[in-house]
C-alpha cells in the first residue's frame, strides 16, 4: 500500500482498521473504515479516540466521500486524519484535499503515479467557493486561495 499525502498532516499507519459496525465492540480501535453509504454522524461517540477515518470509494464517480469528509470536518469537527482509498483518480486530488481529506491510498495502476497527484494538487491557483481549508480572498468577488 502506497500512501500519498495531500496536505501537511503526515499519514499514520494503523494495525487495526475496523468497520463502523465493529467500532462499538473494539475499544482499542483508533481507525475506522467508512463505506460510501455510511453516515459519518454515527462516529460522534467515538471521535475522541479515533486517529484515522478511511473513506472507501467504490468507484471514482461515487462522490459521497466528498460530503462525508466535509461533514467530518465541518459538523463533527474531526481533527484526525481522513484518508481516501478505493477507486480514485489523481484528477480528484484537489477536490479531496479541499473537502478535508489528508491522504490517499495510491491506485495500483497508472493512476497511482505520485507525479500526477502532485501536479493536480497544484493545477488551480484559485477556487470559486469556500472549502474546509483556511482561505483568503483573491481579488474581488468569490475567489479564494489557500492561506498558507
Amino acid at each position: 500500500m502506497r500512501l500519498f499525502e495531500l496536505g501537511e498532516r503526515s499519514a499514520q499507519v494503523h494495525d487495526v482498521l475496523v468497520t463502523l459496525a465493529e467500532l462499538a465492540e473494539r475499544d482499542d480501535a483508533r481507525a475506522v473504515l467508512l463505506e460510501s453509504a455510511d453516515d459519518p454522524a454515527l462516529l460522534k461517540p467515538y471521535l475522541n479516540r479515533l486517529d484515522l477515518v478511511v473513506l472507501r470509494f467504490p468507484v471514482f464517480r461515487d462522490g459521497r466521500g466528498f460530503t462525508q469528509a466535509r461533514e467530518l470536518r465541518e459538523y463533527l469537527r474531526f481533527s484526525g486524519e481522513i484518508r481516501a482509498e478505493g477507486h480514485i483518480l489523481p484528477d480528484q486530488a484537489a477536490f479531496l484535499r479541499r473537502c478535508g481529506v489528508d491522504s490517499v491510498v495510491l491506485p495500483k495502476d497508472g493512476n497511482g503515479d505520485p507525479a500526477l497527484w502532485e501536479k493536480q494538487l497544484r493545477q488551480f491557483p484559485v477556487a470559486y467557493q469556500r472549502s474546509v481549508l483556511p482561505e483568503r480572498s483573491v481579488g474581488p468577488g468569490l475567489r479564494v486561495e489557500e492561506a498558507s
Binding site: 461515487d62 477536490f95 470559486y128 467557493q129 472549502s131
Partner: peptide, 16 residues
C-alpha cells in the same frame, strides 16, 4: 454569474 462561479469545479459536488 455568482452561481456559475460558485458551482465551477465545486470540490464536493462534481461527482453527484
Amino acid at each position: 454569474e455568482i452561481l456559475r462561479q460558485w458551482s465551477t469545479l465545486h470540490p464536493e459536488f462534481t461527482f453527484l
